[in-house]
Simulated assay, not measured.
Amino acid sequence: MIEEEIVRAVLTSGLDDWISLDEILSYAKPPQAAIAVIRDLLDRGLMRAGELGETGFEPREASVAEIVAEIEQACVAFDWRPMGGSGWWFANTKRGNHLVAAG
């Protein structure tokens, strides 16, 4: 898949629920390509990155550069293998939902 197709696939999946970093990694081949997709999603304001907490999805309040660096560090630490749903999660923004709905 090319990057824009991955972006649309991720956003489509995010229409129903939050999606895990593992799911984004499954779309991108090689897995390191997921970092470019995540950066694009966050830069364009199509998704927010965070974690699941007591209140549900809790967005990470930091710059895109900081968030992407933290995500990449986590991926390297896990040798780009699935993390079993722990760690980073992503939620569509209204803008992301609108982009997918517009086709």
Rank of each mutant, 00 (worst) to 15 (best):
T55K: 14
R48L: 11
R44G: 02
I35N: 04
E51G: 12
E70V: 00
P82G: 03
Q73L: 05
E70G: 04
F78P: 01
E66I: 03
F78A: 14
G45N: 08
E58N: 12
V37S: 01
E51F: 15
G53H: 11
R39V: 02
M83L: 13
M83I: 04
V37E: 00
I71H: 06
A65M: 04
R81I: 01
E51M: 13
A34K: 05
G85Y: 11
E72G: 01
A49K: 12
D43Q: 15
A49D: 02
R44Y: 09
E70Y: 08
E72D: 08
L52R: 15
F57M: 11
E54W: 14
E66K: 15
D79G: 04
R44P: 04
R44H: 03
M47W: 11
E51N: 13
R81H: 12
R81S: 08
P59D: 09
T55I: 13
D79C: 06
P31F: 09
G56P: 07
D40V: 01
E51V: 14
A49M: 05
G53T: 08
A69P: 00
A74W: 10
G53D: 06
E70W: 14
R81Q: 12
R39G: 02
I67D: 01
R44S: 05
V76W: 06
D43T: 10
A49C: 13
D43P: 06
Q32A: 12
F57R: 11
I35A: 04
A34S: 15
M83D: 02
L46E: 05
A69H: 06
F78H: 14
F78E: 10
R81N: 13
G56S: 10
E54L: 13
L46S: 03
A74G: 07
L42E: 05
V64G: 03
G45Q: 13
P82A: 04
E54G: 09
G50R: 14
